[in-house]
């Protein structure tokens, strides 16, 4: 097996999920190469070596400064063709999903996504993919090489092995259509807010709230529980709540003592950001919402009825604990 791992970076740091996948590839027991594409990325090679790469390919070019997928497909396709890697792995993100799928088309290569495990069985690579809201686990494989795989966020922890790697600069030759999309503004955080990553208790709201005005319900419950307020991508994108409070794949990953999910269906993109919570309580009016598959306590009902009462009861308990006067 000769594996290439695509490493994503942001503000001069290789991303944790990328490094986790790199560690997994090294553990599968072969020479693992890494590809770092960007502008001024030379300094990242040593970090890749420490986390399991035995060879680092650097595609360092001003045309790769913006994290756009299509130029990265060009670079990776050339590299894979030249060196004949049989396996190419990605930690799944907004960027890498587009790179991997572009490569699948370019190389006529099979892509399996959302994998939570990779194993070798009798010399055959097998991936595990949760399906149908994680209610079944499917063993998937590839019929040809290269084999492309996107690994679900947070699946593998990075392992620092402290090695060294040879570093090679690769030529950057881009297709005409690959440079047509341009980044006008990048990674702009819409507004600042309190950090939710350190919060002991989180009360989170989703589209089931019905409208931005109903975040007041959440704020009151969070205050009673001494916790922070969080939101799903859908409501953040809709402008109901600031990005800094977003939990999920494209937001924060949190693991509070208590996570209360209100009007959140609990799709996988949300689940990966909060599944490490100690206790999960969910209220949703849809009995088929995926969140009921993994909430410790799920209540099927109208949050607009239940939440004000819950806040009142928690406040009453607090008052009993801390009697005034």
């Amino acid at each position: 097996m000769s594996t290439l791992v695509f490493l994503e970076h942001h503000e001069g740091e290789l991303q944790k999920d990328s490094l986790g996948v790199l560690g997994k590839a090294a553990q599968l027991g072969d020479d693992v190469s890494a590809l770092i594409a960007g502008s001024g990325v030379e300094g990242l090679a040593a970090q890749a070596a420490r986390f399991g790469a035995s060879k680092v390919y650097l595609a360092d070019d001003p045309a790769l400064a913006a994290p756009l997928p299509q130029p990265r497909v060009d670079v990776a396709a050339d590299l894979i063709r030249r060196h004949g890697f049989d396996t190419v792995l990605f930690g799944a993100t907004v960027l890498t999903a587009d790179v991997a799928a572009g490569l699948a088309a370019r190389l006529d290569a099979g892509l399996n996504w959302d994998l939570v495990e990779l194993t070798q069985e009798n010399g055959k690579l097998v991936g595990k993919r949760p399906a149908l809201d994680d209610t079944v686990y499917v063993d998937v494989g590839w019929k040809s090489e290269p084999r492309l795989a996107l690994i679900r966020t947070g699946t593998f922890e990075p392992v620092e092995s402290g090695g060294e790697a040879g570093v090679e600069q690769v030529d950057v030759q881009l297709q005409d259509f690959s440079t047509l999309a341009t980044m006008v503004e990048q990674a702009h955080e819409e507004s600042e807010g309190p950090s939710i990553e350190e919060a002991d208790v989180i009360v989170a709201g989703g589209r089931g709230l019905g409208g931005p005005e109903n975040f007041a319900l959440i704020e009151e419950l969070a205050k009673a529980l001494g916790g922070a307020v969080a939101a799903t991508r859908a409501v953040v994108d809709a402008g109901w709540y600031p990005y800094s409070a977003q939990v999920g794949q494209t937001g924060k990953t949190v693991s509070p003592r208590l996570y209360v999910a209100l009007g959140i269906s609990g799709a996988i993109q949300h689940k990966v950001g909060m599944q490490g919570s100690n206790v999960i309580v969910a209220i949703n009016k849809d009995p088929n919402a995926p969140i009921f598959e993994y909430a410790d306590l799920g209540v099927v009902g109208d949050l607009h009825q239940i939440v004000p009462k819950l806040t009142e009861l928690v406040n009453a308990k607090n008052a009993a604990h801390f009697p005034r006067g």
Partner: peptide, 9 residues
């Protein structure tokens, strides 16, 4: 939206 904030492309 990406993992790092909002892009305009």
């Amino acid at each position: 939206q990406t993992e790092f904030g909002y892009d305009v492309i």
